[in-house]
Structure formats: structure tokens, C-alpha cells
């Protein structure tokens, strides 16, 4: 399935874009998505860490994504 990713901070720089479409397997988990990202964009491996938010909530590695979700890549935050 094709999903759309929102990217911020350094993730946006890695994609060269704030929105990136990516093809993943049906019933893709966050863990699968992270692996896919690292294999397609090896620079993700250089980050201190990155989280995935689904519909504006942080979700764990076993969370299964759906095409209707709003999915965002959250590199290490640095507000304040």
C-alpha cells in the first residue's frame, strides 16, 4: 500500500520535502516502516532516534498502519 508521510526538522531535509509518499506492505507496522525508511534513506540511521506519530499520537513499534492514518516522522525534538 502507498502511505503519505509528514516529515519535520531533519527528516524533511532527508526527503527534501515535507510530504513523502512511500510504498509499504499491507499491515505494515511502525517497526516495518522504520526499517523501510532506513533501507530507502540510509541517513535515517544517522539520527539519534526517530519516532512515528499516528493521527497526532506517538505510537510504539508494534502499531499497525492504515492508509487512512496521518503518519508523521518525529526526529529528536528540541523545542523550548
Amino acid at each position: 500500500m502507498e502511505i503519505e508521510l509528514l516529515a519535520f526538522g531533519i527528516a524533511k531535509d532527508i526527503f527534501g520535502n515535507g510530504i513523502q509518499k512511500i510504498t509499504v506492505t499491507y499491515k505494515c507496522s511502525i517497526k516495518d516502516l522504520k526499517q523501510e525508511l532506513i533501507s530507502k534513506y540510509p541517513k535515517f540511521q544517522d539520527l539519534a532516534s526517530f519516532a512515528i506519530a499516528v493521527n497526532s499520537e506517538y505510537q510504539a513499534d508494534d502499531f499497525v498502519l492504515s492508509v487512512k492514518d496521518e503518519i508523521a516522522i518525529i526526529p529528536p525534538v528540541s523545542g523550548g
Binding site: 526526529p75 529528536p76 528540541s78
Partner: peptide
């Protein structure tokens, strides 16, 4: 509030230094 904000709120800070620009905390 400030300690928790710095850990969890999705806001990113880019520093503009004399030798370039960097996203804070992005890389180890």
C-alpha cells in the same frame, strides 16, 4: 512543564552558526 516539553512536544530548533546550520539534537 519545560522539562517535559523539551522531551515530547514536536517542535524542532535549527541553530544558525557561523560555520553552518544544524538541527539541534538530531544526530548523536
Amino acid at each position: 512543564i519545560i522539562d517535559t516539553l523539551k522531551q515530547s512536544v514536536p517542535i524542532w530548533k535549527k541553530e544558525f552558526l557561523e560555520n553552518g546550520e544544524y538541527w539541534v539534537s538530531a544526530t548523536p
